[in-house]
Design a protein around this nucleic acid. Structure first.
Ligand SMILES: [Mn+2]
Ligand SMILES: [Mn+2]
Ligand SMILES: [Mn+2]
Ligand SMILES: [Mn+2]
Lengths: 152, 152
DNA sequence: TAGATAAATTAGCCATGTCTAACTTTTTAC
DNA sequence: GTAAAAAGTTAGACATGGCTAATTTATCTA
């Protein structure tokens, strides 16, 4: 007892877990952050190619809200990772691996946004939150989002 | 037309947005990542104090899945940020600011987990996903999660 | 086609958050 | 009360992803 305190009611129970399970959770988050740059870039590159005909560093920089040198550096990392093909001073293309990853990411992004919208959240907020959330949604959770969308 | 393609149906529409709006979204994600370390630490420290009586670096390291020197360094950052009070080789305490932040984070964490559980997701997955998602959930979205939980 | 403008790159800086190896301090057990 | 074990810190390294300033290359325009 003494669970109904003065002001701060405890609406939902805390799950307590084994230290290793908790550690595994944090490790998963760190891993997600490692893939995040690549995912956001290939997703954006695919969209730019589709809607603008080509993907140029200036535009990538503008949409990501970073400076062009940051894009140059990251693109060369993507190239090293085999996701992107490109020659200096030219537009950027996705390799097959890059296209595959982009496809997965775009789909996941759309599902997350659609799910948030289905909760009544406004479009700006849905897009803003989805941009971060997408990288932390497991396959299981993604499927739960989808089935809610399909059933409604 | 040409919307029902061979294999890959397009279940949810893509929202297309102004470059600045998109950039703002990515900037929000970067900011969230800047606060993430502090949030996870104070949340964990509060839990350890509550359940174990005190918060010790070894245990923090074990639960975060990092090595002790990482904890030492990060704790001194939290101290510099005014979230933690502590003397070398002794247990770690939260300042009032630290307690306030911990309270907000713990509540948010519980809401996100409860929400995922309400979608039928298993406990392990819910906790794992929530650990990342929590940092990207706006006040608006958090409230949407809560009202779904309350109405059900 | 030359000169000006725009785009892209390079070089070098910085903060963050991780690590290992070595050292110091505290705690525990005898 | 001392020796061993455990906990904590320090020092120094590294990868990531930002930045600015300066330079190079490409594109546009007169
Ligand atoms: Mn994203
Ligand atoms: Mn994140
Ligand atoms: Mn977290
Ligand atoms: Mn958390």
């Amino acid at each position: 007892m003494t669970k109904l305190q003065s002001h701060g009611r405890e609406p939902f129970e805390a799950v307590d877990r084994a230290p290793e399970a908790q550690a595994e959770g944090f490790a998963t988050v760190r891993q997600a952050h490692e893939s995040e740059m690549a995912e956001d870039y290939v997703e954006l590159i695919a969209e730019l190619i589709e809607t603008r005909g080509e993907a140029r560093p200036v535009e990538i920089a503008e949409r990501l809200g970073v400076k062009p040198p940051t894009v140059t550096k990251n693109i060369s990392r993507l190239k090293a990772a085999g996701l992107v093909r490109r020659e200096p001073y030219r537009a950027i293309f996705l390799t097959q691996a890059g296209q595959d990853l982009a496809e997965i990411c775009r789909r996941r992004h759309r599902v997350v946004v659609a799910f948030l919208l289905s909760l009544g959240i406004d479009e700006e907020t849905a897009e803003r939150d989805a941009e971060g959330i997408e990288h932390h949604v497991s396959q299981t959770t993604l499927e739960a989002f989808e089935s809610r969308l399909n059933q409604k």
